[in-house]
Each structure stands twice: as structure tokens, then as C-alpha cells.
Simulated assay, not measured.
Amino acid sequence: MASHPVLIQPSGLRFDAPAGTSVLMAAQAAGIKLPSSCRNGTCRACMCLMLEGSVAYAIEWPGLSRDEKEEGWILPCVAQATGALEIQAPGAAPIEPAAAPVRPLTGARR
């Protein structure tokens, strides 16, 4: 399956987005957290600026105005990279592994 390199600015984080996978889901699979909420293109929480590249949308008309699209804004939750992509997403960060829960020591008493 083909994949496309994605560079996130200003963090410099990089990952590959497999064809047919949203940019948001590919980032998460690579251990990168992007701001998001609805994951269906309506809330705009994930909105970021596309600096280079191109995307295709999994839905007919995502929650962006025509002007926003022309300015380069994208919604990574429903956008699929169609080639190398560079985006500006200041809120991007590595996903921190969850700390293991602290459990009290148990055992038989002597």
C-alpha cells in the first residue's frame, strides 16, 4: 500500500500517512497527537494550515468555507494525503504513554 510522508511544523514531527487513511488517524498510529474532537469534519477542532502538498477528502464537503480551502486550511480528521504533505499544527505533540496504575502489594501474611 502506498503512503505519503507528512511533516508537522513547527515541531518537526514526521510520519507516513497510508493511502486511504485520514491524516489524523495516521498521526495517531505513529504516536503523534493532533488536536481533534468530532472526527467527522464538522467541529473544526483539528483545523490546520497546509503549507505544501495536497489532500483529498473522505466526505463531499468538509466544514471549511471555500475561502478557507483556497487559503490552504484543511481538516486532518477527514483529509487524506495524496502526496508529500507539510502542515502547520502548533498543538501537535508525541503521545505520552500512560503510566502504569500503582497497585498495592498483596500477598499472604506469615
Rank of each mutant, 00 (worst) to 15 (best):
P97M: 06
Q88C: 14
T21E: 12
L75F: 00
I74K: 07
R44F: 02
E52H: 09
T106Q: 12
L105N: 12
P90H: 04
L51T: 06
S3G: 14
V23S: 00
A26V: 01
A56E: 15
L64N: 06
H4W: 13
G20F: 04
T82C: 13
K33H: 13
H4S: 11
S37T: 09
C77L: 10
G20C: 07
L24V: 04
E52F: 07
K33W: 06
Q28C: 05
F15W: 00
Q80L: 15
A26M: 10
N40V: 12
A100T: 14
L7R: 11
R14C: 09
S54H: 11
A79N: 08
E60F: 11
W61R: 15
T106Y: 11
P97E: 09
E71C: 09
R109P: 11
S65G: 10
L64H: 05
P18R: 03
G63F: 00
P101S: 13
L7D: 11
S36M: 06
C48Q: 08
L34S: 00
I59H: 08
I59Q: 03
S54P: 09
L64D: 01
L49I: 02
A98W: 06
G20P: 02
A99M: 12
L85C: 06
L49D: 01
A29N: 08
T21Y: 00
Q9R: 11
L51Y: 03
A81Y: 03
S22V: 03
R103W: 14
S3R: 13
I59P: 05
T82P: 10
A26F: 05
S54K: 13
P35H: 01
V55K: 06
S22E: 05
S22F: 07
P104L: 15
V23E: 03
E71G: 09
A56L: 12
G20E: 03
A17W: 09
V6N: 00
A79D: 04
D16Y: 07
G83S: 12
C48I: 06
E52T: 11
H4F: 13
P5W: 09
A56P: 10
A84H: 11
C43P: 02
A30I: 05
C46E: 02
V55H: 04
L64K: 06
D67I: 13
G83A: 12
E52P: 03
G91I: 00
A79L: 07
P35M: 08
C46H: 03
